[in-house]
Amino acid sequence: MRKIDLIVIHCSATRCNRDFPVTALIRCHADRFGFTGYHYYITRDGTVYQTRHEQLVGAHAKGYNSRSLGVCYEGGLNAQGKPEDTRTKAQKWAMTNLLKYLIKKHPDAQILGHRDLPNVHKDCPCFDVKAEYAGITI
């Protein structure tokens, strides 16, 4: 059984005015990695998809994949293609509930944004994960 001590939040880096359904994510990752790199994906309507079994190592945070889970939300870019927190109310609600569930399963896990990891030079997930989810506990 894998020891999970990190939950990494990502965005799909897609424009908020263009759909990027779970099927597109799966296809994109299959082409890139041969499998889906994130464990969970949250679409704009707040639907949570488990896209990879938690016991399987993902491909979402180089150097941290063996000990982490990857959670991604659809969006992260505004209509002009600039990084922005584009989460809908439904996505925020779904992400909070998913993180509460994951912390119960993995009580030693820390929740971070992709950009919070050392040597990551991206805006992903385009909001301050540490501030927003600091209060999530079991």
Rank of each mutant, 00 (worst) to 15 (best):
I136N: 00
R115T: 12
S12L: 03
E84H: 08
A79S: 14
C124Y: 06
R32H: 12
H39V: 06
F35S: 10
S68I: 07
K122D: 11
D128Q: 04
C124E: 08
G113C: 11
T23Y: 13
R115P: 01
I9F: 13
V120T: 09
E74K: 05
Q50T: 08
K89H: 07
R52M: 14
Y101A: 03
G113M: 14
K89Y: 04
Y73W: 09
K104I: 13
A79T: 07
S12T: 11
R2D: 05
T14N: 10
L102N: 12
K62I: 04
D85G: 00
I26W: 14
K89M: 01
R67W: 03
F33W: 15
R87D: 01
K105C: 11
P125F: 06
A79F: 01
Y101D: 12
L98Y: 14
A131E: 07
K105T: 01
T88Q: 00
T86P: 01
D45P: 03
L98M: 10
V120R: 13
P125E: 02
F33M: 10
T51E: 11
T14H: 09
G58D: 10
G75E: 02
T137V: 09
D116S: 14
T23L: 14
I4D: 08
G81E: 00
R27W: 13
D31L: 14
N97G: 02
A61D: 09
Y133Q: 00
D128E: 08
I9L: 15
G75L: 08
A24F: 12
Y64C: 05
I136E: 04
L102A: 12
I7Q: 04
K3H: 07
Q110I: 15
R15A: 06
G37W: 15
L25S: 07
C72N: 07
E74T: 05
D19C: 13
I136M: 06
A109W: 00
E132C: 04
L56V: 03
H106K: 10
K82T: 07
K89A: 04
I9K: 05
K62L: 12
K62C: 08
R44F: 06
N17M: 00
Y64A: 05
L77Q: 03
K130G: 02
R15D: 05
T23R: 14
L112E: 12
R44W: 04
V57F: 14
C16Q: 04
Q50R: 14
V120P: 02
K100F: 15
Q110F: 06
G46C: 09
R67Y: 10
A24H: 15
N78I: 03
Y64S: 02
A79R: 12
L102C: 09
V129E: 08
I103M: 02
Y64K: 08
